[in-house]
Computed example of a mutant assay.
Amino acid sequence: MKKLFFPLLVLGLFLASCQKESNDLKVQQANDIVVDMSDFYVYTAETADSPTDVKAGHEHGATCRCGSMKVLNKKLKENPGLEQRMFDIEKHTRQLIAAKADKAVTGKKPAPDPDPVPTIYEGAITIPVIVNILEDPAHPITQAHIDSQIDILNEDYNDLNPNTGGVPSEFNNAVADCNITFVLAGVNRKASTKTTWGTDDSMKLSSQGGIDATDPTSFLNLWVCEIGGGILGYAQFPGGALATDGVVIGSDFFGENERGGVYGHGRTATHEVGHWLNLRHIWGDGRCRQDDFVTDTPSSDQPNYQCPPYPTVHCRTNDMTMNYMDYVYDNCMYMFTNGQNDRMRALFAEGGAREGFVQ
């Protein structure tokens, strides 16, 4: 029996080695696809929006909706390796999207490929969510708030938002069903005497009075607290430190919440989870030549506020004001595009920054 066991063990190790080499080769083949990275950027204006945009927002009665870009600028200065990691993630994303386009270019069904080059992840995606609440008696978060927020995320990432029927005809073919399902996996609560937490990630660290993240390689962590400064929420882009990976939402803007007013219908989480899944603001946080890296979103040079009329024109194109990555009121945003969906799904493919969620 011992004589038979040893050759079988050797054969098993050999086959495992061959499988690993095959997987490594597939990733290498994807990485060999040439893509243009000349437009890549990470730093934006020092504030979350340019001074002109902030002024315009205040004139429209808007808060500074998203703090993600301001937080990113700070992290880039503190961590010299972050820019390169984000560059690598972006390059991998573009290579996978290019591989998908290459397969579709002939319009014919390809012959079965026993060793295909990876493209974006095409299966259903389920994301377990941990909700970490820094409890403030003046801004309570109930189970109803939590349940409604999970429901809203599932509506928005599965093309079930009832307002999507209002998408203008020129954008109809771009509307995406992202096929991403969010499942509540746990709730952590901690009493807090802080009236504002700011954007320094202290709410994510027990050593600073917050709540530590639960395994960010397998769970989306949401922190709910009073942020302050007129910021509704912010997210960490892929490539950042695991200890702080996730999304922060202001207490009044979490789930269906009457305290949030026009921003009280759960779309702050939809927007910020979009950043967590590697989406930029739809206007690219710059002028007309700075892009969001998505081919089917029109160019723009500023965010939109309130519920703007259609068409609203910037950079000589009609703005997609109803996109979740703009700054309009919650009930006036109701679509992702197929291009945005490709970007998000690239994270879950082989070698992607969030591959652990689908392994």
Rank of each mutant, 00 (worst) to 15 (best):
M1A: 14
K3H: 07
K3P: 00
K3Q: 11
L4W: 10
F5L: 14
F5P: 00
F6I: 07
L11P: 01
F14K: 00
A16L: 15
S17N: 13
S22H: 03
N23L: 10
N23R: 08
K26N: 01
Q28L: 14
Q29R: 15
N31S: 06
N31K: 06
I33C: 08
V34T: 06
D36Y: 06
M37I: 09
F40W: 14
F40I: 10
Y41A: 07
V42S: 10
Y43H: 12
T44F: 07
T47Q: 10
K55N: 10
K55I: 07
A56M: 13
G57H: 11
H60Y: 07
C64M: 13
C64A: 10
R65G: 02
G67C: 11
L72T: 07
K74F: 07
L76A: 04
K77R: 04
Q84P: 04
R85H: 13
D88Q: 14
R94F: 12
Q95W: 12
A98S: 15
D102N: 15
V105D: 09
K109H: 08
D113F: 02
D113S: 04
P114Q: 03
P114V: 05
P116G: 11
P118T: 06
E122A: 12
E122D: 13
E122I: 00
I127W: 02
I130L: 01
I133E: 00
L134T: 05
P137H: 04
T142A: 00
T142K: 00
S148W: 09
S148D: 04
Q149T: 01
I152L: 09
E155N: 03
D156N: 06
N158P: 11
P162E: 08
V167F: 03
V167Y: 03
V167R: 02
P168D: 10
E170P: 01
E170L: 11
E170M: 09
A174S: 12
A176M: 10
D177T: 05
T181V: 04
F182A: 01
G186I: 08
N188Q: 03
S192P: 11
S202W: 07
I211P: 08
D212S: 11
S218R: 15
W223R: 07
G233Y: 05
G233L: 08
G240M: 12
G240S: 13
A243Q: 08
T244G: 04
G246E: 09
V248S: 14
I249T: 04
S251T: 14
F254H: 06
F254W: 10
E256A: 05
N257C: 13
N257Q: 09
G261I: 11
Y263K: 10
G264M: 09
G266Y: 09
T268F: 04
T270Y: 05
G274N: 02
H275M: 03
R280E: 08
H281I: 01
G284C: 13
D285I: 03
C288E: 11
Q290T: 12
D292T: 05
V294I: 14
T297H: 05
P298L: 10
P298C: 07
S299H: 14
Y310F: 13
R316Q: 15
N318M: 06
M325T: 04
D330C: 05
Y334R: 07
M335Y: 06
F336Y: 15
F336V: 06
T337I: 04
G339L: 05
D342T: 01
R345G: 05
A346M: 02
L347R: 11
F348C: 14
F348V: 14
E350T: 02
V358L: 07
